[in-house]
Amino acid sequence: MNTRIKKGMLCNHINPTRLISPESLPADTAFQAGDVAVFEVLEIGKHTQLQSAGRNLSILPGDQLMCVFGTRYATNQFEGYIPAQIQDEYHLLGGGGVVGILESTHTKYEKEGPTRLKLIGIAVDLKGQIINTIRERKHSIKKFTGKEAFKTKVILSLGSSMDSGKTTTAAFLGHGFAKKGISSAYIKLTGTAYPKDKNLAYDLGACVSVDFSKLGYPSTYLSSEAEILNLYETLLAEVNSKNPEFVIVEIADGLFQRETRMLLQNPVFMSTVHQVVFSAGDSLSAVHGMETLINWGIMPSALSGLFTASTLLIKEVKEYLYEKQDLLFMPILNLEDLSLGRWPEIQRGYNLLQA
């Protein structure tokens, strides 16, 4: 086996006994999320690097990559799925080493497209079983009870869409906690495997920072509700070992994304939440995101996100929410406010509609 195989972040510890060539597999072989395989780079597209466990690895045509099959939902990048059968070509859907078949692309990446791959072989263990990163960690997954959430205070960081500022909000909220001498942890509960978000949160002050990929998941897109709740319980148990006063839990993408909506409309999940901070990219998404959450019975404790960089957008949001919705108590926090720990509603529970 090629000793220069470049491994994606979920494959660092994996050393397969052998590879099964695609020619040796039945044509109708159906891969599963987390299945490990080795691919040859055919053509470089959007992704020019592969995130390994330690650093970004530059990749070129002819390189061999060890990656995992998975899905991706990213409105500003790629939508992709695991193929139902063996294909002549595959696509690198995420820089962490998630591979599938591209379904749709944001127009800004249409010209360059995805990095194209050819399947060399499926990684198998001593028993001849396909190595699967999710199955490897199955024994570590705890069944959801909600008990771990009540050992701390969970703050959800939500956004109106991808790139609305929810990760930055979460990280700077943790930074403000650290400045106040308050211990906080960070969890990225849903999304596609990539370490940037959890690294930012840790660098800015979280005492511990983890995400779903730690449990072998290349992505949470199309995972069942039970799976995500079990991930929530398991990751909370891990960070609770540090006894944080708060745990900031980020849920990827916008309110209408499948897993986000599923969680927010689950009363058992929401009963474990102390507070919600909602981030939006502009005034319209801030206002209508608030209206959506209120319709779902959720009252955020604060607004933040990209729109807070503009005085005019903040003014528009205030005019609507304060005058039209009578939400005079609603704080709008920019990065400075978050970083300095200015959270007037920090002890308020999220569901003021039922208070």
Rank of each mutant, 00 (worst) to 15 (best):
I182W: 10
S183L: 14
S184A: 13
S184Q: 12
A185P: 07
Y186E: 10
I187V: 10
K188Q: 14
K188A: 11
L189Y: 08
T190E: 02
G191I: 05
G191Q: 07
T192Y: 04
A193M: 07
A193Y: 07
Y194C: 13
Y194Q: 14
P195K: 12
D197A: 05
K198V: 13
K198C: 05
N199S: 10
N199L: 14
N199C: 08
L200A: 07
L200P: 00
Y202R: 14
Y202A: 15
L204K: 14
L204A: 05
G205K: 06
A206H: 13
V208T: 14
V210R: 12
D211M: 10
F212Q: 03
F212P: 02
L215T: 00
P218S: 04
P218E: 01
S219N: 08
S223T: 04
A226L: 12
I228A: 01
I228Q: 02
L229N: 05
Y232G: 02
E233V: 04
T234W: 02
L235N: 05
L236K: 04
L236R: 03
A237L: 03
A237D: 13
A237G: 04
E238K: 14
S241V: 09
S241W: 00
P244W: 07
P244T: 09
E245C: 08
E245T: 13
F246Q: 09
V247T: 14
V249I: 13
V249D: 08
V249R: 10
A252L: 11
G254N: 10
L255G: 05
Q257S: 09
Q257N: 09
R258T: 13
E259K: 00
R261K: 15
R261Y: 13
M262V: 01
L263H: 02
L263G: 02
L264W: 07
Q265K: 15
Q265C: 13
N266F: 04
T272P: 03
V273Q: 02
V273L: 06
Q275R: 15
V277F: 09
V277C: 05
S279W: 01
G281R: 11
D282P: 08
D282N: 15
S283F: 04
S283I: 00
S283D: 08
V287S: 06
H288Y: 15
G289T: 08
M290Y: 15
L293D: 10
I294W: 11
N295C: 11
N295K: 14
G297Q: 05
G297E: 06
G297Y: 07
I298L: 00
M299Q: 12
S301N: 12
F307M: 12
L313G: 07
L313W: 09
